[in-house]
Design a protein around this nucleic acid. Structure first.
Length: 356
DNA sequence: AAGTCGGGGCA
DNA sequence: TGCCCAGACTT
């Protein structure tokens, strides 16, 4: 419980009224909020919720418009090749989201949209958060969402620094407005995204400030306590650029890391740290002849700090158009290396077809 | 319960 | 630089 000087939390109906009044006046206008409250378009809400997983709204907006233009309906999404879906997702990260979205679209095209929480939860890529969001926003179901915003807002409101997932869900369930569940969920997330922000919360603008334990403590940013994260490992790899930055030999990546995307042929550098050995391995695998070192690229991902040694190579393998393939940022950096190098080597305007 | 999966924004 | 973001899935 909170200390003696901290405010007792207000009765739940009072908290609901305060936040919903703020939301009605200051809630964000977002493209997936078309349609009436609690009756939003399921397809638009679902796509948005998948896109926004671990992705800030400001960033998701760009991809959302692009994605809906490419796939205006669930049927269009279901009928598209997965390569096209990944191309629309290119640069957005966590590509399993796009693969699952495509699989789920095919299930929906066959069976129709789910109509409740349990139905949504059964779809690939849909977990407790997304199922609660779509059920409340599109179907008016009384399901409380639990995301990073909710966790932060409720941890601060009740002064619980070490809030567990179950604790947050229980508080969210208790607070959820039974009359306006969709609006309530949107309101808590809007508050977390625009007022109760991680680094510099705008407490004077907060409709719950008078009831907030973290505000009373004087150090609202201490709630919740930071999550412990495993450190990124430093890894090295060799990539082959066979061709140029427009036409190159590309491979389809398998597995979890960047799975489904295309990319330059790569080979991880072994624990002995021998780059030349990795270069030899990948060249033998492709039947390619190694050329000169084009340079190094460094790229950080969630659990990896990658140093990529990019070599030119020659091979009879067919090249693909880079522009139409879905590539990771790492591969785009590697391709950019060639362009930067050409510009530095040739001060005069470059003539076409002079690469390799 | 802990690891893994991208990439960018921001203090 | 480190932490965070409208999380889900695997082990």
């Amino acid at each position: 419980m909170t200390a003696g000087s901290a405010p007792m939390s207000a009765p739940i109906p009072e908290l609901r009224a305060a936040l919903l009044a703020w939301f009605d006046a200051a809630g964000r206008d977002l493209p997936w909020r078309l349609g009436s409250e609690g009756r939003r378009d399921p397809y638009r809400v679902w796509v948005a919720e998948i896109l926004l997983q671990q992705t800030q709204v400001a960033r998701g907006l760009h991809y959302y418009d692009r994605f809906l233009e490419a796939f205006p309906t669930v049927e269009a999404l279901a009928d598209a090749p997965v390569e096209a879906v990944l191309k629309a997702w290119e640069g957005c990260g966590y590509y399993a989201r796009a693969r699952n979205l495509h699989r789920a679209a095919q299930l929906i095209a066959a069976d129709g949209f789910p109509t409740d929480y349990g139905g949504w939860l059964a779809l690939p890529g849909v977990g407790p958060y997304t199922a609660a969001a779509v059920a409340s926003l599109a179907h008016g179901e009384a399901r409380a969402v639990n995301d990073g915003n909710v966790r932060r807002v409720l941890s601060r409101l009740y002064g619980e620094a070490r809030s567990t997932d179950a604790w947050v869900q229980a508080r969210a369930d208790a607070l959820l407005s039974p009359d306006r569940p969709g609006a309530w969920n949107e309101a808590v997330m809007d508050l977390g995204a625009t007022v109760c922000t991680p680094r510099a919360p705008r407490c004077p603008e907060c409709p719950l400030a008078a009831h907030c334990a973290a505000r009373a403590s004087g150090t609202p940013t201490a709630f919740p306590a930071p999550k412990v994260r495993t450190a990124a490992r430093a890894v090295q790899a060799v990539a082959l650029l066979i061709g140029d930055d427009r036409q190159a030999v590309l491979e389809r990546r398998e597995g979890q890391l960047l799975g489904g995307l295309m990319g330059l042929p790569m080979q991880a550098v072994g624990p002995d740290g021998s780059v030349s050995e990795a270069l030899k391995t990948v060249c033998e695998r492709l039947g390619a002849t190694p050329g000169e070192l084009l340079g190094q690229v460094s790229h950080s991902m969630t659990h990896r700090q990658i140093t990529l040694h990019v070599y030119a190579a020659t091979s009879g393998l067919p090249r693909q158009a880079v522009a139409t393939a879905a590539l990771s940022k790492l591969d785009h950096k590697a391709l950019g290396l060639l362009q930067a190098r050409q510009q530095s080597l040739f001060a005069a305007p470059l003539t076409e077809g002079s690469s390799v």
